[in-house]
Amino acid sequence: MATAFFFFILIATFNLSLLRVSSFEPAPLQDFCVADPTNLVAVRVNGMACKNPMFVQADDFYYGGLHIAGDTRNSYGYKVTPVTVYQIPGLNTLGLSLIRIDYALWGANPPHTHPRATEIIMVLEGTLQVGFITSDPQNRLITKVLQKGDVFVFPVGLVHFQRNLGHTNASAIAALSSQNPGLISLTNTIFGSTPPISNEILAQAFRVDNKTVNHLRRKSMHV
């Protein structure tokens, strides 16, 4: 399984890098731009400010622990372990990242989007139903049940989800075509914004009453 895992990572990373160079970002003009979050005065170009390359160390390109299962004891029954620019500063401007997703029995990663990244996912263990929804006006659901070793792609910006359908815990690894892909959770975004969207707008949009809107707000605050 370890060989298949690293082969998947190699191919996914290579393909996402080609996508980034051809479609999103220009070719780099330097070897790397290790993120320096403490530098608040430098000009940022599609990423964080760069650390002085003379001070860059191996640990700026390293993360350990992705083999450790995440804690799925929450209301959704899933846990995402990210490896983005915030975990590996050396990913800054390189246009790729990884995540590990763990699912309890019947756990689900609810509908969400990554506004800056296409995602390619491979099942490590278990059985997952995955899917995404195309944009208006079709709004087609594209869905499939995946087994161990299967791979599926979620196009950039489209709403997608995963759910554990098996009789055991499940896990997956995914590569994304951005060092900072972003996350928009539909439930939390709509019902948990600050300041909140007015009850009148949400009640009209979802064709429900204010009582239902308030109930959904409370639910989104206790995920």
Rank of each mutant, 00 (worst) to 15 (best):
S23L: 09
P137L: 04
Y103T: 06
Y86R: 12
S23M: 09
V41A: 11
S17R: 09
C50W: 00
P137Y: 04
P196H: 04
W106D: 12
T93C: 05
V34Q: 03
C50E: 01
T13M: 09
F6K: 09
R218P: 07
L141Q: 01
V43H: 11
R100F: 05
Q30E: 11
H114G: 05
C33P: 02
G90L: 03
Q179V: 10
T212N: 13
M48F: 13
L183K: 00
Y86T: 12
N199W: 06
V213L: 08
T168C: 10
A42K: 07
L165Q: 08
D36R: 01
V56W: 03
A27Y: 11
N139V: 08
T72Y: 14
Q138E: 13
S171N: 06
Q147M: 14
V45H: 04
K144N: 14
T189F: 00
G95R: 00
G126K: 03
P28C: 03
L19V: 02
A203V: 09
I120H: 04
L202F: 08
F154Q: 06
S220Q: 08
Q129Y: 07
V159T: 15
V151A: 09
T127S: 13
F5L: 09
H167S: 13
T3N: 13
V85D: 03
P26S: 05
E200M: 11
D59V: 14
C50R: 00
A58S: 06
N214C: 12
W106H: 15
I142S: 06
N180L: 03
V34M: 00
T212M: 14
G77R: 04
T84Y: 10
A170H: 01
L176H: 01
T3S: 13
R20Q: 05
D59Q: 09
N164K: 11
Y63T: 13
L183G: 04
N15E: 12
G64T: 07
D60G: 02
L66I: 10
P28M: 06
T143Q: 13
R20F: 01
K51T: 05
K148M: 10
N92V: 01
Q204V: 15
F61M: 06
G131P: 09
Y62H: 12
A58F: 11
Q162A: 12
S198L: 05
T118S: 13
G70P: 08
Q179N: 10
M54T: 10
G192T: 04
V156T: 15
H167V: 15
M221R: 15
P181R: 02
S22K: 06
Q147G: 13
L146V: 09
L183M: 04
G192L: 02
T84G: 07
E125T: 10
V80P: 13
